[in-house]
Computed example of a mutant assay.
Amino acid sequence: MGYIREFYERFIKLEEPEWRFIAAHFQKQVFQKQEHIIDLGETENYLSFIESGLVRFYIPGDEREWTFHFNFHKEFTGAYDSFLTRTPATYRLQALSETMLWRISYEDLQEVYTHTRAGNFLGRFIAERMFLTCARRTIDLVRYNATERYLQLLKEEPRVLQQVPLKYVASYIGITPQALSRIRRQIS
């Protein structure tokens, strides 16, 4: 759980009793490679911190899947809209490698919010960060063509290209794997 404390303390100093209270509400869970963390139609009951591993967000389809987000180690993850609204998820979260999560339930998170200033602060910070990520992704999809989106990814998120299979990278930038191969050939 040291990574979670490290994450918190990048933003706010934790007193030991406050940290013990927060830490007591998290539980560890490991997902195997390709295992679904949450499936389509399930309500997200946990906000999770990735100690190790990689998580893909995607919408399944009859002909192809649409990948729209990734989370890496030392990041929070989850179907946050489902978590907040207590409604079924309209997409899946999948572990792309063995993934160790520290998870806090919706009810326990409400208790942490109520009883700690750090929990409240971090909750707001995570919500704001998720909103900004979503807004930026939407703007990038509208503003840039596939080659520009790939170049943006190369520049701003090289770990996606280093750790994610290319078929998911192609889906993430909205093209086929064959089109991604052409783009990669053209720019190299």
Rank of each mutant, 00 (worst) to 15 (best):
L96G: 04
T85E: 10
S97Y: 04
F125V: 11
E128T: 05
R86F: 02
R129M: 12
G119D: 08
T87L: 11
R124L: 14
R117L: 13
F121A: 09
A79C: 05
R103N: 14
R117K: 12
L122I: 15
R129N: 09
A89C: 05
L109A: 09
I104R: 04
Q110E: 15
T85A: 04
H115I: 02
S97W: 01
S105I: 11
E107K: 15
A89R: 03
R117C: 09
H115V: 02
Y91T: 02
T85N: 08
L122Y: 08
P88V: 10
T90K: 11
L93V: 00
T116C: 11
Q94W: 01
T116F: 13
L101K: 05
I104S: 01
E98P: 13
N120Y: 10
W102I: 00
E107C: 13
E111A: 11
T116V: 15
Y91K: 01
A118I: 09
L132S: 12
V112A: 08
Q110F: 04
G119S: 12
T85V: 02
T116E: 13
Q94F: 00
R129S: 09
A118S: 15
Y106I: 07
R124Y: 11
S97Q: 12
V112Q: 12
A118P: 09
D81K: 07
F131R: 12
T114H: 14
S82C: 08
R117I: 11
L96C: 04
R86A: 06
G119M: 08
W102Y: 09
S105M: 12
R129Y: 10
R117G: 11
E111T: 15
L96H: 03
R124G: 12
L93T: 02
E128I: 06
T99H: 07
W102E: 03
Y113H: 04
M100P: 09
L93Q: 01
L122Q: 06
T85H: 01
L93C: 01
G123I: 09
A95I: 01
E128G: 10
Y80N: 00
R92V: 04
F131Q: 14
G119Q: 07
W102N: 03
Y91D: 00
F83S: 00
A118K: 10
F121W: 03
M100G: 14
F131E: 11
A95F: 02
E111M: 15
A127L: 07
D81G: 12
G123M: 05
Y113V: 11
F121C: 04
T99R: 10
R86P: 00
R103E: 15
Y80V: 06
H115S: 07
A89F: 09
I104K: 01
